[in-house]
Amino acid sequence: MSEPIRLTTPLSRKDVEALKIGDQVLLNGVILTGRDAAHKRMVEMLDRGEKLPVSVDGQVIYYVGPTPAKPGAVIGSAGPTTSNRMDAYAHRLMELGLRGMIGKGSRGRNVIEAMQKHGCVYFAAIGGAGALLARSIKESSVLAWPDLGTEAIHRLVVQDFPVVVINDVRGNDLYQEGRKEFDLTAKTIV
């Protein structure tokens, strides 16, 4: 596997266009968090024509609901949650310039197409590696909607946060391609 690529947020369209599936990326800088409830609220606001409490332009959003932080700790265990629950909302944020999403598991066709159209990539963090991932999170604060608890939108400052590119801006999917390479059951098409 090639050397990891270090990237610092905010990301430009050019930054994400240079990424391809299977790339290991170490993210640095500020990332946002949001999962089911926050996404629902954001899209409801957009439907009403309101402005979001946070700008997602150039940002990366991490689908995570951490465990409570112990006293003195920045955050608890903080691994990714299943992304497809955000599929219905994702394109709305991409329309506003969102450049990256971090989660785990496959995305729907509509999301992959929106990534191609708007210039956004989908990264996976290792599902179930919440203790390891927490080490790369240096600061955490609530940006919006504290009433949502673990689901509130947080601002995280990350240092070398390890992710892998699953879907790039060209519509490729590592979950499909990676598997093909090791599939012993499929007929080989040359």
Binding site: A124, G178, F182
Partner: peptide, 9 residues
């Protein structure tokens, strides 16, 4: 099937 760790192959 080739799915592999985390489904990445």
């Amino acid at each position: 099937l080739g799915i592999g760790p985390q489904g990445m192959g």
